[in-house]
């Protein structure tokens, strides 16, 4: 089954985060009005509960992971189409060694696609107001589509002209989408977008 190292790692992150939350909450100023609980009461209660609930999760997930590691030595885990049990982990936060997935190239490609979309989205947010809506959105759409196209490997084996034609098509798509949304938002919805 799932031999995703990410599972126990995420539980661990929850443990650390809830402990941090508890400490931060206890530093809140203790102001109490008539009959009231302190502002820190709920944050402390919640983080304590998260901590308590995360412990059994961590234990169970670690066990499962260890067990799966054991069995995977003898049998190859079948590649499930259901991603919630997908064997490869795009663990951005963890530097822990990754379990070798059934098809390593595919696993790495998936992770790359994921990271790529996150990175382009972040760039989009940063550039949204400085560049204005039209330019940033066109670039964002173009980057998304071309990026996935390249990472997916569809461009391999194409002639230069065919590639150019494809890219031109994507560019038209990006520009038309950006302009169409611009017109609908600013003209029909009267929602201003940055210029």
């Amino acid at each position: 089954m799932a031999q995703d190292i990410g599972k126990p790692v995420f539980d661990l992150i929850l443990l650390v985060a809830s402990a941090t939350g508890f400490v931060m909450a206890s530093q809140l100023p203790d102001v109490v009005v008539l009959g009231d609980l302190s502002p820190a009461f709920f944050p402390q209660l919640i983080s304590a509960l998260v901590f308590i609930c995360a412990v059994p999760c961590l234990i169970r997930d670690t066990r499962q992971w260890l067990a799966a590691r054991h069995t995977s030595a003898s049998t190859t885990a079948p590649l499930s189409t259901d991603t919630s049990a997908s064997p490869s982990a795009p663990q951005k936060a963890s530097s822990a060694p990754q379990e070798a997935p059934a098809t390593p190239s595919r696993g790495r490609r998936n992770t790359l696609q994921w990271l790529f979309v996150v990175a382009v989205s972040l760039a989009y947010i940063v550039m949204f107001e400085p560049l204005g809506y039209v330019i940033s959105t066109t670039l964002f759409c173009l980057a998304c589509v071309i990026g996935l196209w390249c990472i997916g490997g569809s461009h391999k084996g194409m002639t230069g002209a065919a590639m150019l034609k494809n890219i031109a098509g994507y560019a038209v798509y990006a520009l038309v989408l950006a302009m169409a949304i611009y017109i609908v938002f600013t003209r029909v919805f009267q929602i201003p977008l940055p210029n």
């Binding site: 979309v117 989205s121 989009y124 959105t137 964002f140 759409c141 998304c144 589509v145 996935l148 798509y173 990006a174 989408l177 950006a178 949304i181």
Partner: peptide
């Protein structure tokens, strides 16, 4: 294309 449009 759908992915990028949804994000936008």
């Amino acid at each position: 294309q759908l992915l990028s449009a949804i994000l936008v």
